[in-house]
Amino acid sequence: MTNQFNFLMLPPQTAITRGWADRLAHSVPGMNLIVAEDGAQAASAIETADAAFGTLPPDLLTKAKRLRWLQAPMAAPPAGYYYPALIEHPAVITNFREIYNDHISAHILAFVLALARGLHVFIPQQIRREWRKPPEDHGVVPLPGAVALIVGVGGIGAETARLLAAFGVRVLATDARRTDTPEGVAELHRPEALDSLLPQADFVILTVPHTPATEGFFHRDRFARMKKTAFFINIGRGMTTRLDDLVAALQSGTIAGAALDVYEQEPLPQAHPLWGLPNVILTPHMAGYGPHLNERRFQIIQDNCRAFADGRPLRNVVDKKNWF
């Protein structure tokens, strides 16, 4: 049986969200769709909304007497999206996780291959028009037999493990939720095993979201546990890694290098020392870029609207206390 419900699209609106609204209005039986263009419209509509999409600030939450489901607008919304009153509210929250698995895992693999083959050395040499070969046995990490430690094997981490295993890399992994071992993972551990696993890895790859448990959890002591020949990769969230500690580890030779797509502060300031380090590859928080993302986002919203109308379980339910 399909239930009637009010679904509120919270502001701000874009051409994309308006397009989603038009498609939803014609594809979800039983749904009364309200598209709020500004805060005043949202404040009026939230009082009778059973479900909503977007960012719900505290002043609107106090008026949300009927709200039972909130679709977050990102896979891992920025700090502040989950505040105490929202966490305690009975509404279920869902997010957009799983839509980036192929794009981000390819970006991670590009980082691994670039670091393993010394491209962080050769590309600057190319810019300088400098022909300089290293010794034949220097500057290459042979992937067959190398060890990668993936911190967080959700959809992105699991796909990364599968790709790395195809290159002969032995993959170790930690995860707070997962109990099944994904394809390509040789060993799956609880997060508490992280410190004991770090000394084994040639590549340490962070895919975890920013949560209360992961904020700043990669710091000086953890870099000190890594091999001097190891590389650090972060494509999860910038707030998981203390950049000052990473810079110190890179400058002192504590680790061999790093590749980052996310940073504690974004954009990364022009004066930040990471820009000038020769053993670093930086990309501007775009590892998830690729085709079909907006269609994938829409599909999750549509699937969840239909499930909500039918009283079925929703996709991508968030553990609100842990923000993910």
Rank of each mutant, 00 (worst) to 15 (best):
G155T: 05
T211Q: 02
F217T: 05
E183V: 14
D22P: 06
L277R: 03
F53K: 03
H189G: 01
P144M: 07
V169H: 00
A248N: 11
W275L: 06
F5Y: 13
G216D: 09
P199D: 00
V208T: 14
N294E: 12
T48V: 10
I255F: 02
T55K: 10
F308I: 08
A307V: 12
K227W: 00
V28K: 05
N234I: 05
L109N: 12
I150D: 03
I233F: 09
I156E: 02
D195F: 00
I99C: 08
V317F: 11
G184V: 04
L163K: 12
D102P: 09
E264L: 11
G257P: 02
A148R: 01
T241S: 08
L172C: 03
G152N: 04
F324V: 11
Y82I: 07
A249E: 08
H219K: 15
Q251Y: 05
L197Q: 03
N32G: 10
V280L: 06
K320Y: 09
H292D: 14
P284I: 11
I127K: 13
L86T: 07
H26Q: 15
E98Q: 14
R170D: 04
L143G: 01
I93H: 05
D195T: 00
A49F: 01
A76Q: 10
L10Q: 08
W69V: 13
M286Y: 04
P90S: 12
T62D: 12
G54R: 03
P199I: 00
P278E: 11
V28H: 06
V140N: 09
A45S: 11
V140E: 09
G168N: 03
L246Q: 09
L113G: 06
P29Q: 07
A148N: 01
P269W: 03
F53Y: 14
P11Q: 07
V171P: 03
F53M: 07
D50F: 04
F324N: 09
T94A: 05
A248M: 10
L164T: 02
G253W: 06
E192S: 12
N279L: 14
A85K: 12
N294H: 15
E295F: 07
A72E: 06
R132L: 13
E266P: 05
Q200Y: 06
A76V: 14
K321A: 15
F5A: 09
A110H: 15
V28M: 06
V140Q: 11
T211S: 02
H219I: 10
P267I: 08
I104E: 01
M239E: 12
R306P: 10
V151W: 02
R225W: 07
D50I: 08
R117E: 09
I87K: 10
H210S: 11
I104L: 09
T211R: 01
G19S: 13
V317I: 15
W20V: 08
A76G: 15
R178C: 04
R242N: 14
P291S: 10
E215R: 14
L277K: 04
I205Y: 01
F167S: 03
M1G: 15
H103Q: 13
F96Q: 14
I255V: 11
R117H: 12
G253L: 07
